[in-house]
Design a protein around this nucleic acid. Structure first.
Lengths: 208, 208
DNA sequence: GTTTAAATTAAACACATGTTTAATTTTGCT
DNA sequence: AGCAAAATTAAACATGTGTTTAATTTAAAC
């Protein structure tokens, strides 16, 4: 995919991603970014216009291909439950790989302040929800999934579980003895992913 | 319960809660707080020492009785599943009632920056986890709950689902047509709470 | 090689930040 | 009423903020 950003811009974007993710948007100054990226402070305004627009550019830069991957998954000819499991694994893997930007999205786009940029992001999520609906409706037609689940609340359970775990990393590292970064990432990829898959499966199938 | 804070301090704390919650810790200035609380800027330093210590005081002020309520619940002589449901409802109700401070905790205490104050908060959570463990182990002994669930991951599912929903309030208000604050709160109290209870119940009971 | 546009720079700008100071007012006590 | 402690104030302080300016360097085009 052709990127609209040149090397210098990408360098700035990636430093911004690190810092925004670590210290928050308000907690990061343009001078912080400039210093770490080894550029002049004026370059940010020169290339992106403003700090606010730098954030916009960063989001565009990072969230462009999840939609594609989801649509590819939809086409696969596998059982609904397997599709759900794959969707969960895909979500977690993608987000885990791009921890930085998703942390920023999670943090910055929930406050009323940045409502203007929220629009594009909101469209992305509505599309994702549509994909999930299609899969679940397929499973319901086949009589595998129960019909009284509230589909829009499934995403919060998937993503919320993951985010709550990840946002409280220090707590769970300590609690579960995940001393190295590898152990932590591996725990997410196996145990946490499994837990979420198991949870959603139970929710979709269990008859009380 | 006797509070250690006088009226003026409480006035400052509550304004700080509102603003920190709305605009984040870094996004809120002492002058913002002073103006809204109709006090002089110097009063914050005078009463709390610093902006950082104001946050500490705010946390102490707000998170002092959840533990008590949980312990009371543990004593009740009801079935494990009902206890779990009550625990979920209690969590959501408490957090929903104190949206402000929990939003702040969620936002500010996940970044590495404020690790010092994290200790007391971490102890509170370990206690809460212990309570959950006791209830689930009781259910397992009675043969009601399955034994292969990872208990520490249940809290992320409960709280994560709620937080993800609540943090993305504008999105869900729009999606689910929750036009008024009452409709939104009611949806949390009924549908969302139900969804989470249903999810955890399925997870604990369903045999694949 | 000269010209033109793009990239980069240091400095300045105007304003916001958390905190402290020193002076004044209010309060509680005898 | 007189006094000491506490509360409150406006102003100052030093530093940090995002952004702009005007000058200089680099690169591209002819």
């Amino acid at each position: 995919m052709k990127s609209n950003f040149n090397d210098k811009q990408i360098q700035i974007l990636e430093v911004a991603e690190t810092l925004f993710s670590e210290k928050g948007f308000d907690g990061t100054s343009i001078r912080n970014i400039a210093k770490l990226a080894q550029i002049n402070v004026a370059m940010v305004s020169y290339y992106f216009g403003s700090k606010e627009r730098l954030l916009e550019s960063l989001i565009v830069y990072r969230t462009s291909d999840l939609k594609l991957q989801l649509e590819k998954l939809l086409q696969e000819e596998i059982e609904p439950l397997e599709k759900i499991n794959k969707l969960i694994a895909l979500y977690i893997d993608r987000i885990n790989l791009n921890k930085g930007i998703y942390r920023i999205l999670h943090f910055e786009f929930t406050s009323k302040k940045r409502e203007q940029n929220i629009q594009a992001f909101s469209e992305l999520r509505k599309g994702n929800l549509k994909s999930l609906e299609l899969i679940i409706e397929e499973g319901q037609k086949k009589g595998i999934f129960r019909k009284d689940v509230i589909i829009p609340l499934i995403t919060p359970t998937i993503l919320g579980t993951f985010f709550h775990f990840h946002m409280n990393k220090p707590f769970f590292e300590n609690l579960l003895n995940l001393k190295t970064e590898d152990l932590y990432n591996n725990y997410i990829k196996t145990n946490l992913t499994n837990h979420i898959q198991q949870t959603i499966k139970a929710l979709l199938i269990y008859e009380s």
